[in-house]
Nucleic acid binder design. Structure first.
Length: 685
DNA sequence: AGCACGCCGACT
DNA sequence: GTCGGCGTGCTC
């Protein structure tokens, strides 16, 4: 943990200035200002909002301290424990504190020109609310303790669920991390409910983190049914800034019992938190990729640790990290087996694409299997992880491939356009080759559009839907589509992984996964883990129909050893095999990684910078690979290089990176080169 | 990130 | 002679 206190120099009030891209600035000491409260400060030629992070001292006599202009709050807007968490994030993920606070605070608080509400309802230490600003409440809320007993839905838990819930509730009041390993349909949510009910009974709050918005409406309905008289706050990217701000205020004032939200909800100011739950803990979307790169799961673990409360990580396909942590006793593992799914009603089939005829990426055998399921009035799901019509447009005569002018990548063919999926650049599909003017342009490879078109022609009677990002932009309602599927109106869906999780389709008996070869042979060491998770998750969708569920995988390498382990012995066996490989290669979870990437128009600049960084880190005893071109070496006109830093000691890595950042700023080495530091990167592309 | 300072090209 | 291009550096 970084400490900003320093005994030398003039006493000051230390302020994190929002939008400054620094940790803090010192201002003239103000005795009574509260840590965690907002202030308005002069900054350059403008004024900014800042958050008081403590008393400090300014050692440099050349700096004249300015005075704080306005003290906005007389209480910690950010509670101390949340501020501590932000400081930890800033230190661990190598990001300026102001960047962390920007993510943690609602937008409204960042702007000094916003009217300031000083009439903020203060929560008393015992957790009840001083009334007087009832307008903050959107819906009436009964006393929480009374509400639990009168839940609308009566659910009987099975043995495993009861035991899991008991273990968790017994841990209330101290830190303990649980890994709830429950296959699809095993009823993880009911276990969460039991634990949350116990927390609410203690007049404490529960924080539930889910990976994506797609899941929230369904989950929210279940939460509302289970806790009808409890105030549930929803936080995700789809809600308005105003609504988000309101929920933040209500949480701060102890008026919310449950927060259900996506990764940024981990920053909700709940001061009487009793439990944290991270659902689908393996999911990649829990790691933010832009701006501040943090893992909501790991931040959640730290939050629970600091708050001395239990945390539950739930998944049907836990990450290797979490399973390894369970193995060495860091997490207490709780298993849930399925009520519905057994080996008898789920069958995998690998289609060898080298020995089968296929059209538009679909083998004739696969098509026959699809027809069988449709004939039984069952539903079918076809996955391809690529939107558009085809990933490549090739000139049959001169061999020219249409490439993006700004990136090292091919343009993806869509209906009438060629689009770069990396920078968004798009052009009208040309009638003939731009080089040799031949009209023989052929699409190579498959995307959702192409598969959808092909299946529409060979199965004209079937009611079909395509679901991918392009399609969702046109008609806004993902839910309408899902409803059509749930009600059995739609018989076949072609889509990307955006529909892989969370949805129950009662009549779904067949899942077809096309084009898994890219993942089977990917250079990214996590590709197989992710493929195993995807296959297992979607297989769970197919195993609940009346007829036996089937999963069809098309591949050019049907003998792939790890694929066969997954298919024959299941996800746990795949994990075991992958862990052996990771240990041999000294990769996570047996080592810690940081990816440092530098971008500039001129290649030599990031190259020189990364070389300096490499030497510096090597002196600190870290192992550094590179500099090497990033997977997409040129993106939007920028040359991208990267180094990969490896260590078996998390602390040593952290200290060296912190030193590195100080060195870079003091020597002003970065200037106009775009540098990003990704601690615990989740994909290396 | 903003926003200013600063040193070289095409204009009234 | 100036207006303005965006490279570089600072904000307590």
């Amino acid at each position: 943990m970084a400490t900003y206190l320093n005994s030398l120099g003039r006493k000051s009030t230390r302020v994190c200035v929002l939008g400054s891209y620094h940790d803090y600035f010192d201002y003239v000491f103000l005795p009574d200002v509260v840590i965690g409260s907002r202030v308005i400060v002069p900054f350059g030629k403008k004024t900014r909002v800042g958050v008081v992070i403590g008393p400090g001292s300014c050692a440099d006599p050349k700096i004249t301290l300015k005075e704080i202009s306005v003290v906005v709050d007389n209480f910690p807007l950010i509670p101390q424990e949340l501020l501590d968490l932000c400081l930890w994030i800033s230190n661990y993920y190598q990001a300026p504190l102001s960047t962390v606070l920007k993510v943690a605070l609602p937008k409204k608080y960042r702007d000094s020109s916003e009217p300031l509400d000083l009439t903020y309802p203060l929560a008393d230490p015992r957790g009840s609310v001083k009334q007087g600003s009832d307008d903050l409440l959107t819906e009436p809320r009964a006393s929480a303790s009374g509400a639990v007993s009168q839940s609308a839905e009566v659910i009987t838990l099975n043995n495993e669920q009861s035991l899991a819930a008991l273990s968790i509730t017994q841990a209330l009041g101290h830190y303990q991390s649980f890994l709830l390993y429950g296959v699809t349909g095993s009823g993880k949510t009911e276990v969460y409910f039991e634990a949350i009910a116990a927390v609410i009974k203690l007049q404490q709050q529960a924080l539930v983190i889910v990976p994506e918005i797609g899941l929230t409406p369904i989950l929210l309905a279940r939460f509302k049914a289970r806790f009808p008289n409890v105030h549930i706050g929803i936080v995700h990217s789809g809600i308005s800034d105003k609504q988000r701000h309101l929920i933040w205020q209500q949480s701060r004032a102890n008026q919310v019992d449950i927060i259900l939200g996506t990764r940024s909800a981990i920053f909700t100011p709940l001061t009487n938190l009793g439990i944290v739950i991270v659902d689908e803990e393996h999911d990649l979307s829990l790691k933010q990729q832009d701006n501040l790169r943090y893992s909501a799961r790991d931040v959640a673990l730290m939050r629970a640790h600091k708050a001395h409360i239990p945390i539950v990580l739930g998944s049907a396909t836990p990450s290797l990290e979490s399973l390894y942590n369970a193995e060495r006793g860091k997490h207490h593992i709780l298993y849930l087996h399925s009520k519905a799914l057994t080996d008898d009603n789920l069958q995998y089939r690998i289609i060898d694409m080298q020995n089968h005829a296929y059209e538009h990426g679909i083998a004739n055998v696969t098509l026959d299997i699809i027809k069988e399921h449709l004939a039984l009035k069952q539903q079918v799901l076809v996955f391809i992880n690529r939107r558009g019509f085809a990933p490549v447009l090739l000139c049959h005569d001169c061999g020219l491939i249409m490439d993006c002018s700004a990136c090292d990548s091919h343009l993806t063919l869509h209906q009438h356009k060629l689009i770069c999926h990396h920078c968004g650049k798009n052009i009208i599909k040309p009638k003939c080759c731009v080089k040799c003017a031949s009209p023989n342009l052929v699409p190579v490879g498959i995307g959702t559009q192409r598969v959808y078109e092909y299946l529409s022609t060979v199965l004209p009677e079937t009611k079909m839907l395509r679901i991918d990002r392009d399609q969702m932009q046109k008609k806004r309602s993902f839910e309408t589509f899902l409803q059509q599927m749930t009600e059995g109106e739609t018989e076949l869906i072609v889509g990307t992984q955006m529909l892989a999780k969370g949805h129950h389709f009662p009549k779904l008996s067949l899942v077809v996964i096309l084009d898994i070869d890219a993942s089977l042979h990917s250079p990214d060491f996590r590709a197989l883990e992710h493929l195993g998770q995807l296959i297992t998750q979607v297989a769970g969708r197919a195993g609940r129909a009346q007829v036996p569920g089937q999963v069809v995988l098309q591949t050019q390498t049907p003998k792939h050893a790890l694929l066969n382990i997954l298919v024959q012995q299941g996800y746990s066996a795949l994990v075991k095999a992958l862990l052996v490989l990771r240990q041999e290669a000294i990769l996570p979870p047996f080592a810690y990684l940081t990816l440092i990437r530098a971008e500039h128009k001129v290649l030599a600049k990031p190259m020189a910078l990364l070389q300096i960084i490499k030497n510096f880190l090597a002196e600190q005893g870290l192992y550094v690979l590179g500099p090497a071109p990033a997977p997409l070496a040129r993106k939007a006109g920028m040359q991208r290089l990267q180094i990969l830093v490896k260590s078996n000691d998390r602390n040593r890595m952290n200290l060296a990176l912190t030193k590195l950042r100080t060195m870079l700023t003091s020597k002003r080495l970065v200037s106009n080169i775009h540098l990003s530091i990704d601690v615990d990167p989740c994909d290396l592309s």
